[in-house]
Design a protein around this nucleic acid. Structure first.
Lengths: 194, 194
DNA sequence: GTTTGTCTAACGAACGTTAGATAGATGACC
DNA sequence: GGTCATCTATCTAACGTTCGTTAGACAAAC
């Protein structure tokens, strides 16, 4: 069984509300910043009822990360759509990160969870790892025919992740905008001289 | 009063033990992953005795971050030592990050705390912000005469921060080694054509 | 005698989790 | 159509654990 968008479960409406609330809290403060009582208040039920939808917190965490991964990749679109140039795709990737911070007002989920990987329940840290694997896969494909595309993809993702942390800590969301030309230029010249 | 290495307090031996233990735990799992009871067990006293050295947890957090900042900058050395080239200094910066992950086996402190900035006690998030300000200052100076040195410094720091998160989540510490040539090359060409 | 550092003991709060009751909807069988 | 059983989703109530924090006693050092 291959995990991914195909494995998307059909959550009930209330379960989706819970996932959404949990994502916001998790992106703000990490895995331990989410409590069943807070989630219950967020969606208007009692904490024991939240356990009805997600019995274990670790499974709730995994569900949040997998849903986030699907949504993020869905936002990016196809990595090999012919109508888009390589530079279009890199810019789209940057937009994904910019959107997370400036629109949602909270950092990328896996930016937060990735940093505390060592302390997460294994099932959650595996989901986080899978986020990066899939995102690097998307980027690698988006870069097209290019030797060392995967290494470059890892570098691009890493840069965006870190820029988000710095932008957050310094309260300078502009940093994520400034990063775009650096990355576009890097990709451009890697394609010229591989 | 200007904060920084000059403000270094003279902690007792036991207080230093506590700071060290707290740093390791904080780097592994974030601010909330540190408990007074765990710290007490780490250094062989009771939790109430830890409160004798650091009455409030937020102040303990601030102390840990400030000590970490001083140590990190101390490791980097002078940013304008004439015997070192600009590229030497960039490599030294990369080594600082590599050392954190491969030697200490835990990520950079401010990589973890920066990601959860929104949920930290203000006194701690200010200390984290100050870490980045000082580190960017060091890097900016290290880059020497160069228009846009500060922007480039922010970009370098951000890249290293993010590479650490990705390296951690994917369990590929090699990523931090691979990042070095990217950064050295970027600096080299920015100095050629500013 | 004051200071320094540790201890025991306890406080109220928050945590994840569970058991069991309850109400409403759904569907099967006569 | 009416009855009964099951399923769904919530509730109240509570369990034991951990948390940061505090009060106050105690011993050694200065």
């Amino acid at each position: 069984m291959i995990p991914g968008p195909m494995g998307k479960q059909d959550y009930s409406e209330k379960a989706l509300e819970i996932l959404e609330a949990a994502e916001v809290r998790m992106r703000r403060g990490g895995f331990d910043a989410v409590s069943y009582r807070d989630l219950a208040a967020d969606v208007g039920i009692k904490s024991s009822s939240v356990h009805y939808h997600f019995p274990q917190k670790s499974e709730l965490g995994r569900a949040v990360v997998e849903r986030y991964t699907d949504n993020f990749l869905s936002f990016l679109g196809a990595p090999d759509a012919p109508k888009n140039s390589v530079e279009d795709r890199v810019r789209r990737l940057c937009q994904g990160y910019q959107h997370a911070l400036t629109h949602d007002k909270v950092p990328c989920l896996c930016c937060v969870l990735g940093a505390e990987s060592l302390d997460l329940p294994p099932v959650v840290s595996e989901a986080v790892s899978n986020f990066f694997v899939r995102l690097i896969g998307w980027t690698s494909t988006a870069l097209g025919d290019l030797s060392g595309a995967e290494d470059l993809a890892k570098h691009l993702i890493s840069t965006l992740q870190g820029t988000m942390v710095t932008a957050l800590a310094l309260k300078q969301p502009q940093l994520l905008i400034d990063a775009e030309p650096y990355l576009v230029r890097l990709v451009r010249q890697e394609r010229r001289s591989p």
